[in-house]
Design a protein around this nucleic acid. Structure first.
Lengths: 335, 335
DNA sequence: GCGAGGGATGAATACGTATACACTTCACAC
DNA sequence: GTGTGAAGTGTATACGTATTCATCCCTCGC
């Protein structure tokens, strides 16, 4: 195990200066074609790869993007991460992944200053997180994906949660439902808030009231959806439909319905949000509002690259449509 | 947006040399307590963080680990990744994540030489992948997690797949099953091979034969399990139990059973492998052989750190037990 | 009073690359 | 024949840190 060869070693081998080797590496046009060919041959023979650290130190660019996520085990987040990996990779960028649940805030603060990455993708914006303010304040190019923050001067790419939720509500109302359950998240961010408000707006526009007892506020996990469904469905006169703000909660609700013996969709319709891969499994067969993960990530990475290119460009907030995907958990017309 | 302060700037501010600042940063004992205190105060006031690149270039250590994975959307892999993130973070290490499906092999080869990371965690060993040979040959400390490669001189931490599979087979046989289906992966690695062989061994030891028509070889996705179940269960005399080598396939099998109207466990028992979080959801309630994700990752990272410390230490291959977790997909004694 | 020695600090250098600058060579126009 | 410019190349330097080496001061023992 010997130290890998440097550009200087190779320069000696090729009979040129280190500067010329570097020029070849950076595709500098000011180099004689013959020289270039000779150097390239030597590089190839030696199986040489430039030291990324030294290069980054000199150029100030690491070709690496920092990604902050939470709960990778949540199906939607896993899909988001997978897509981020795909898009970054196809852009020739590496990804450093941080989990804001595991990493203490001081670590995060350090990272922001270390110039270890060219930019950040933040996917877990919450009101109470100082991460985003810190990231923007640090001056490092930053894009918010999937979850935005109102009034933050920062590029953002989000689904149109409000409209998607509205469509879901409208769909239930049009099908004749009037006794509707809403399992919502204790609001910590834009996303779940809009998924809540949009739904309520659709019902209000149609003149359908939501009984306060039909609204359950829960946490993120599957088990919380399960508990909420049990609570709603074990009442004497349970709601005929339940809408919730994430697929994960919807899966919990389906499980809870199963537990209390309620049939879906005969006894109760269920609608989720995200349209994760699991939603299409027969075990769930879940009607869900789709989040355009692919477009969100494509657009977001594009935005980030443009901002790295030109830090002074005006911020953009891009909203992408979230269409309702109908499956068996609501597939039948209501009698 | 101004350039972040350097140790030299801070040295000037504190009235000392850059060398002294560096000594404070590295906890070098050869510095006067008073000086140290003064420097620390200045560092704190300036909110200074050392440039990670420069430090890495000098020390040759990046405090970053490269992780290679596939299919993050697969529940088990997501759990593995989550755990890796947790353990690395608590060790003060960063993680660069590569997806070997997205990243072309040449990228991988470059990465191996760039000294961008102190070591590698490989989680997706397959026979045909050159990645592992390359990684080991590159001399960078490397540990294989979850999937091993026979005869590769490299630290490895794997579950005892053979024994886990054996126990699953034994459990079915003991319950009186004699007509048993096996949904297995087209073998591309150690893991699925042992999960297959161990199971067959248990049946053989008990004198139970597996009909060739009861063995289905499939690919990784959920849909493949679904198709396999349909194939097995729509026969005139379907098997009374199906064992498969991953939870993901088991979920597909449960869905397929549902599709053809077979009741679990009344008509058919189902056993998976990995014991992912989803297995405990009521929708599946799946009996599954547990992979000790937490221990695997803890042990693996520990091994990796020790190898980074001392590259000459002898290679270790550590095998951890995989206990069978019994749930509703098999919970009842067979009549 | 003087040398030895330890403790604390600064000056200088190296990590491996990219690039500004200087220099040489050659072709060409006057 | 001299001057001009372009094309290639080499020299030197900088990125920000860690670390070796040299220096200085102070204490202590004689």
């Amino acid at each position: 195990m010997t130290r890998p060869p440097t550009s200087r070693d190779l320069a000696r081998l090729a009979g040129v200066s280190q500067a010329t080797v570097s020029r070849v590496l950076t595709n500098n046009p000011k180099v004689n074609p013959e020289t270039r060919a000779r150097v390239l041959q030597v590089l190839k023979d030696a199986n040489y790869t430039p030291n990324a650290l030294a290069r980054a130190m000199k150029t100030g660019r690491t070709d690496t993007i920092g990604v902050f996520m939470t709960r990778v085990t949540s199906p939607f987040h896993a899909e988001l991460l997978d897509e981020i990996g795909r898009v970054l990779s196809s852009s020739g960028l590496h990804m450093i992944l941080w989990n804001i649940e595991h990493d203490p805030e001081e670590t995060v603060a350090e990272v922001l200053q270390q110039r270890l990455v060219d930019g950040f993708l933040l996917t877990s914006a919450t009101y109470d997180s100082r991460l985003h303010t810190m990231a923007v304040a640090s001056g490092t190019p930053t894009v918010l994906l999937h979850r935005g923050i109102d009034g933050l001067d920062c590029d953002q790419v989000v689904g149109d949660n409000w409209q998607g939720a509205y469509d879901a509500g409208r769909y239930l109302v049009d099908a004749g439902h009037t006794d509707i359950g809403l399992v919502t998240l204790t609001h910590t961010g834009n996303t779940s808030r809009d998924r809540d408000l949009g739904f309520r707006a659709a019902l209000a526009d149609a003149g359908v009231k939501i009984k306060p007892s039909n609204v359950v506020s829960v946490g993120v996990p599957h088990a919380d959806g399960h508990a909420a469904a049990k609570k709603l469905l074990s009442r004497k006169k349970p709601p005929t439909a339940i809408y919730t703000v994430t697929d994960l909660l919807a899966f919990g609700i389906l499980d809870g319905a199963r537990a209390v013996g309620a049939r879906v969709p005969d006894d109760v319709w269920v609608i989720g949000f995200d349209n994760t891969e699991l939603a299409a499994w027969e075990a769930f067969d879940l009607t869900s509002v789709e989040q355009p993960v692919h477009s969100i990530v494509e657009t977001g990475v594009d935005l980030l690259r443009r901002r790295i290119e030109d830090p002074e460009r005006p911020t953009e907030i891009i909203t992408l449509p979230c269409p309702l995907v109908i499956r068996g958990s609501t597939a039948h017309r209501r009698v």
